[in-house]
Design a protein around this nucleic acid. Sequence first.
DNA 1: TCTGGGGTCCTAGGACCC
DNA 2: TCTGGGGTCCTAGGACCC
Length: 393
Amino acid sequence: MFLHIDCNAYFASCEVATRPGLEGKPVVVANETENGGGVILALTAEAKALGLKRGTPLFQVRNLIRANHVVICPVDHKKYRRISHQIMEAVQQQGIVQDFVQYSVDEFFGTLPSDQPDELRHYAAMVKDMIAQTTGIPVSCGLSQSYTLAKVATHYAKHYKGYKGVCVLMPENRQRALALLDIADVWGIGRQSRAKLYALGIHTAQELVECDEKTLGKVFSAAGLNTWRELQGTPCIDLHRPAKQRSIMQSRTFVYMTDSLQTLEQDIRTYAAACAAKLREQRSVCRTVQVFLSTNRHREDLAQYRNSVGIHLPSPTADTPTIAKAALAGLHSLYKEGFLYKQAGVILSNISEEEGMQLDLFSEPEDERHRKLMQITDALNKKYGDDTINFGL
DNA sequence: TCTGGGGTCCTAGGACCC
DNA sequence: TCTGGGGTCCTAGGACCC
C-alpha cells in the first residue's frame, strides 16, 4: 500500500518546534517586508481558530493580530529545508517505510508491505510518533492503493480528529470517502479543471471516478486521465525525478514600484548572481537565462506591461558574470519607459551536469580561470555568510 | 502604505527539414 | 473550385504543485 506523509502547518510547526515559548500560541509565518507588506504563509491551529487564513495579506488583518497577540515569524526556508532533511533521515533510519521519496519540503511518499488495515495503521502510527519525537513536527499519514488515493486518505486524517492522524483507505470505504470529497480537493485538479468538471455536473471525486474516459478526454489531458485512474486504485504516477533541479529561479515583488532602469539593473544583477550560486551548488551549468518584468497587476488604474525573454548562451556555464551579463541584456530588451514596475526575476533553464559539459568550439582557457574564481567566491560566502563577496559587474 | 516565491510537466503552434 | 504531405525540434505559456 502507498503511504503519504504530510507535515501539519509545516512552516508554523517548524517555528514552534525550534523557538521556545511558542507552543499553544497563535503563530503565523509570513514573508513580511520592512514596509508592512507580505502575506500569511502558514499558521498554527490557534491562529486558524482566530479566523486567520493562509494567503491573507497582513495589512488586512493587522488589528486582529494585534488584539490577539499573534506571533509573526519571518519565513526561514533554510530552517525548513534542514528539518525536512532530518525527517527524511529519521524515517530512512527507522526502516519501516519502503521506496521512500521526498515529494516536497513537507511531503513524503513511500510504501508499506501489508494490506491489513490494522497492521498499516500500526506501522504508520509508529512512523508518525517517531517523527514527532525526533523533530517535534506533527504529521498526518494516509494509506491507500495509489499515491492520489493516499493523499485523499491524508486529507481525512488531517480533517477528522477521530483518525488520530492516520487514515487507511481500503476499497471497501473508498466510495464513501470519495463521495464526500470535492473534486477541487483532489491532487491534480486545479482551478481550471474544477471549473470544467463543474460545468459537466461533476462535483465530487466519486462522480469523477464514475465518469467515462471519453467524456473526460475532452476536458483532461494525459495528466488528468492519470489522476482519474489513480482515483480508481490503479497506480500510474511515477515520482522518480532527477535529483537535480531543471530550472532555478529568483524573483521579488518590490516594496515600491519603480520606473528606474538603474534600480531594475541592480535587482536583476542580484538575482542572477543568486541563481548562479545555486546552480554551482548543485554542480550544474545552464544554457538559457530568462528574465521577466511586470507592473503591479493589482493596480488597475495604472498602465500594465509584463513580458519575458530568454537569452541563449553560446556555451553552458555557471559563471556569475556571464549569466549576469546575459540577464542584463535581457532586461534591456524588455524594459520600456513609462511603466511602474513591481516585480522582476531571473530563471536559469536548460540545465545540465557540469561533468562532461559540452564546450563550444570557441571556448577559451579564460573559462578555466572563471571557474576557479567562482570556486573561491563560493567558498568565501559559504564560510563567512552569503553576502561576503560579490561581483562588481 | 500594503497583495509570495519557488518549482514541474505538458501542449500547441511556429520554424524548419525533406 | 484549386495551392503536397509528412516529419522534428523548440519555445512560450498554461496548468498544476508546494
